[in-house]
Each structure stands twice: as C-alpha cells, then as structure tokens.
C-alpha cells in the first residue's frame, strides 16, 4: 500500500506537467494582447513593446513556458492585473470558501444520495423506489440557477428563515484565520457566529448538492440492485442475519466502488467552483473569482485559477484511487 501510494504519487508528475502545458497553451491561444489590456487602447506601440519585454512576452513560447513553470514551482502564481496583488495570496480565501461550500454540499449529497439509492434498490418497484427515482430525475434535470432563485424566493424572501447571500453577515463578519469560516468560528469559540455561518451555508449547499445527490442516488441504486441479487447476500440471509444489516453492511461495501468513483468525480467538479451557484448566492469562491477575472480579462488570474482547479481535480481522484483498496481487498496495491 505504501509503495503503491508513492508510485501513484510519482505518476501524478507527468499528469500535472501536461496540465500546466495545456493551461499555458489555452491562454496563449486566446486572442488579445495583455499589454494592450493593461495599458489601455490609447497606448503607444513603444509602450506596448517595452511592457511586453518587461513581462517576458517577447520571448519564444518555450522560454515563457519554462519561466512559468519555474514560477509555479516556487509558489508564484503571478500577479493579478486588476488588483496588482499576488494571486497565490489572493486565491486562498476564495478557495477556502469553495472548499467549505463543497464540503457541506457533498455531505448532503452522499448522505441523501446513498440512502435514497439503497432504499430504492431494497424496495425495488415499490412506491418508495419510484418516488426516489423521480426525485432524482428532477434533481439531475433542474437547472441550478433556477433552483437557487426558487430557494432564495421561498426561504429568504417569503419565509425569511435563512440569509440569501454571502458567507456571513456584514455587521457581524468573521475574523478569518484559516478562511474556513466554520473552523475559524469554532477555533475562536464564537458559537453564535458558527451558527450564523452555517445558516449562510444551507441554501447554496442544497442548490449545489442537488445534481450530485441525484447522480449518487442513481449509481447507488443500480450498483446495489446487482449486489442484492448475488449469492453471498442469500448466504447472509441463510445465516439468519437481519435485512437492514445485510443491506447496509454487506451489500453497501460491495456496491461501493462505482459509488466512490462518482463521489470523487462530483467532488472534483464542485471544488472546481460552481460558477452559477456562487454567482447567484454571492458566494466569494473560486468560481466567482474566475468569473470576475474573465470579465476583466485578467489572464494571470484565469490561468492560475484553472490550474488550481485542475490540480484539485487530479488530487481528489488520486485520493479516490487510494480509497478503492479499503473497500475491495481484491484490488491489490503492488
């Protein structure tokens, strides 16, 4: 297991290198001149030329690529054109916001999705099964922006139960330590603020969770259906074991590999920043950060944002790969 992890970790290097190359290529394929963007349309050709030189943009692409790579490795993600601050320090609060939101959304999705899928499979072809699967179908097909607006209209405006926007109240804002607000408020012992932050999380995380919940539910159902028909489930019944126990312990562990794969992919997608959800709920996450950068043509931010998202995606799948072995001993790590 240890050697496998090391090997798998080393195998990440070419993947990550390829990733940086693609990100680099995409940015360079986009028409438009950064110097022109920075200096404005009235800039003289001389000024553009000298800025290009100082930014290193007159060098051949491979020189630019290697200097870009060198910067990344030293933790320098460049400087934002818009705010003139280093992206590396600017991106973390956004990333933390996204991580917090995605984490809560995934907890909801995994809990609801797996249970719905299990009950569907267990009570196959009953009203419970049909209800769960119709809800899942609605969940997959409902546009997130529409659901988000509905939530805000219902729970914030009409019922006034929950806040509709942001991570915290402006008049009672959290003092960031790690920028993971739930953690920060706990560290500071501010339980009132913890509750306030949690209330802000509810609506966006439900909106964000709908699609993953539905996808996890459907995958769980199909995987469980197959497992529940197998001989070893019959053996467990023949021993006199309770059905609840059989379903949740015996069957679920067997059915978990495809579910885990879906959970991994969905987590990667959520962490990539749900631009729609974050925009609607004014959630200052990476999605919103990149969305703003695109509007301002802030290329370094776009580039680094994409890089960070891709990096997270790769890492989540790496963790999922390692987890496979926990659930199925037949997967041998050599």
């Amino acid at each position: 297991m240890f050697y496998y992890s090391i090997k798998r970790l080393l195998m990440l290097i070419p993947v990550l290198l390829g990733m940086t190359l693609i990100v680099f290529a995409i940015i360079h394929a986009i028409p438009g001149n950064p110097a022109l963007t920075i200096l404005g349309t009235k800039a003289t050709p001389e000024a553009i030329h000298s800025l290009n030189r100082s930014l290193g943009l007159d060098n051949p692409w491979y020189i630019q690529y290697f200097s870009y790579l060198k910067d990344i490795l030293s933790g320098d993600l460049g400087t934002s054109i818009q705010t003139h601050t280093p992206i590396a320090s600017e991106i973390w609060p956004h990333l933390a916001a996204t991580i917090e939101l995605s984490f809560i959304a995934m907890i909801i999705a995994v809990f609801v999705g797996i249970n719905a899928g299990i009950i569907s499979a267990w009570k196959q072809n009953t009203v419970l099964d049909y209800t769960a699967m119709i809800l899942a179908l609605i969940g997959v097909s409902m546009p997130v922006f529409w659901l988000g607006l509905l939530e805000q209209w219902g729970f914030s405006i009409k019922l006034q139960w929950l806040p509709s926007i942001g991570r915290d109240d402006i008049r009672n804002s959290v003092d960031p330590i790690t920028n993971l607000y739930l953690l920060d408020t706990l560290l500071q012992g501010r339980f009132d603020q913890f509750w306030m932050v949690l209330r802000h999380l509810i609506l966006p995380s439900i909106a964000l969770a709908t699609i993953p919940t539905a996808i996890i539910a459907r995958m769980t159902r199909s995987s469980m259906l197959e497992v529940l028909k197998s001989d070893y489930i019959r053996t467990a019944k023949a021993k006199g074991q309770k059905m609840v126990w059989i379903v949740y312990k015996y069957a679920l562990k067997n059915a978990f590999i495809p579910i885990l794969t879906v959970i991994g992919l969905q987590t990667g997608l959520l962490l990539g920043g749900a631009i729609l959800t974050e925009t609607i709920f004014g959630w200052p996450g990476v999605g919103l950060y990149i969305y703003n950068a695109i509007q301002y043509r802030d290329y370094p931010v776009i580039q680094s944002g994409i890089l960070v998202i891709a990096f997270i995606f790769v890492m989540v799948n790496f963790v999922v790969d390692l987890l496979y072995g926990l659930f199925d001993p037949r997967i041998k790590y050599r």
């Binding site: 197998s230 001989d231 070893y232 019959r234 053996t235 467990a236 019944k237 023949a238 021993k239 006199g240 015996y250 562990k253 067997n254 659930f327 199925d328 001993p329 037949r330």
Partner: peptide, 19 residues
C-alpha cells in the same frame, strides 16, 4: 435460519462475501 436449519449452496465461488 442458521441455528436450527442451515443451508449450503451450489456455488462456493460466489456464496461468500468477497469484501
């Protein structure tokens, strides 16, 4: 089941839980 009346099956390859 299991206590008074027990059963063994035809397919030993698939009758045990693999995980």
């Amino acid at each position: 089941r299991g206590n008074d009346i027990a059963m063994i099956f035809q397919e030993p390859m698939t009758s045990l839980n693999p995980v």
